[in-house]
Amino acid sequence: MPSVVLRSTGIPAADRFDYWRDLMSSTHAPMDLRSDDACDFRARQRVIELGDVTVWPAAFPPVVFRRTAQHIRQADPENYHVSLLLRGEGHIFWGRQEVSRYPFSYHTNDTSRPYEIVSGKQRILLIGVEVPKAVLPLPRHRAERAIGLPMSGREGMGALLAQFLTQFTRNLNDYRLSDAPRLGVVLTDLVAAMFAHALESENLLPPDTRQRALVLRIKAFIQQHLADPHLTPTHIAAAHHISVGHLHRLFRTEGTTVAALIRRSRLENARADLADPICAGQPVHTIGARWGMPQASEFSRAFRAAYGVPPRDYRHNTLGAPGAFLSSDGEAPTGT
């Protein structure tokens, strides 16, 4: 996935803070910045365009952001801003309203409202998202009420959004430019669903958005429960309070079936373990059972049907002779 990486360290130390302040104003919205580290401001940001939506992982020293009414009159991109805070803390002020955000919580903002953000003393690491108000599938007056509400990255829709953002930014090379518009739609739906959940107003989401968000929740549930050999469409449907028929209809639009997704995911994880030197001392049937396939013969047949060789042969072809990656005490040696 193409992206642009911006670093302040590529210019003289005395000019870095001014550079970063101008950069934030041009890539996001006009604002003022101040920092105790202004004399040598070391920051980086990656800008990833996903259709209408922009994702920007960033790291920077403690800083104060301030956007005033004058800045808004100067330019207003009319975006909703969402940041998943991964390290550090921030304290946000909208007039007399104040909220604090800590790791794995979300900071939300509106470019049409004046604000001041004061970070803590620790270096900040976050993944920011800019979503145009015009594309968020939620009534604007309701979306504006969501700004500033508590939203966690550890549970519910916030956890699903956090998983998407961290995996996407970590594995950019797995995506092509042609994937960008689709990923932008997925991201917009997740932000809208998180806002609606915070408002307890999921019924305000368009049906298509609710359906896509539900499919994403189900897929995340499947990944989390692959080790359970009793993971079935009936179990999944019950966990999401829908009928089995509804579950199958959802996945029909995905071009696969629930059973096929479970089987493929289990086999992919098992294949990764078989190719991992750290797991070289573990019996093949143990790896199959770890991923919800406790019957060794069934695991072997399914693996061979998917990859053309039995799991034992796949491991041998990938790692070489059994035990080649183990030391005399049975532990994987350092550096493998």
Rank of each mutant, 00 (worst) to 15 (best):
A192Y: 03
A192L: 01
A192K: 02
A193R: 05
M194Y: 07
M194W: 07
M194C: 14
M194L: 15
M194D: 12
F195C: 05
F195G: 03
F195W: 08
F195D: 04
A196D: 04
H197C: 03
H197F: 02
H197T: 11
H197W: 01
H197L: 00
A198S: 14
A198K: 05
L199K: 07
L199S: 06
E200T: 13
E200H: 15
E200G: 14
S201D: 15
S201K: 14
S201N: 13
S201V: 11
S201A: 15
E202H: 04
L204S: 08
L204D: 14
L205M: 08
L205S: 03
L205I: 04
L205R: 04
P206F: 09
P207R: 13
P207C: 10
P207A: 15
D208Y: 01
T209W: 06
T209D: 12
T209L: 03
R210Y: 04
Q211C: 05
Q211H: 07
Q211D: 07
R212W: 08
A213N: 13
A213G: 14
L214T: 12
V215H: 01
V215E: 04
R217M: 09
R217S: 13
R217K: 08
I218L: 12
K219S: 07
K219F: 01
K219Q: 11
K219C: 09
A220P: 10
A220G: 09
I222W: 02
Q223K: 14
Q223S: 13
Q224G: 10
Q224Y: 05
Q224F: 14
H225G: 05
H225W: 02
L226S: 00
L226N: 02
A227H: 04
A227Q: 04
P229M: 06
P229W: 09
H230A: 14
L231Q: 08
L231M: 13
L231R: 11
T232P: 05
T232C: 03
T232R: 02
T234L: 10
T234F: 10
T234R: 09
T234V: 13
H235Q: 06
H235G: 06
I236K: 02
I236L: 05
A237K: 02
A237V: 07
A238P: 09
A238M: 09
A238I: 10
A239I: 01
A239V: 00
A239R: 00
H240E: 11
H240R: 12
H240L: 11
H240P: 15
H240C: 12
H241I: 06
H241T: 11
H241P: 02
H241E: 13
H241Y: 09
I242F: 07
S243W: 09
S243E: 11
S243C: 05
V244L: 07
G245N: 06
G245S: 08
H246R: 15
L250C: 00
L250H: 03
F251S: 14
R252S: 08
T253W: 14
T253V: 13
E254I: 00
E254S: 04
E254K: 00
E254L: 02
G255N: 13
G255D: 12
T256Q: 00
T256V: 01
T257M: 08
V258K: 03
V258W: 03
V258F: 05
A259N: 12
A259H: 07
A260R: 06
L261K: 10
L261F: 15
L261E: 13
I262D: 00
R263Q: 06
S265H: 03
S265L: 03
R266G: 01
L267S: 00
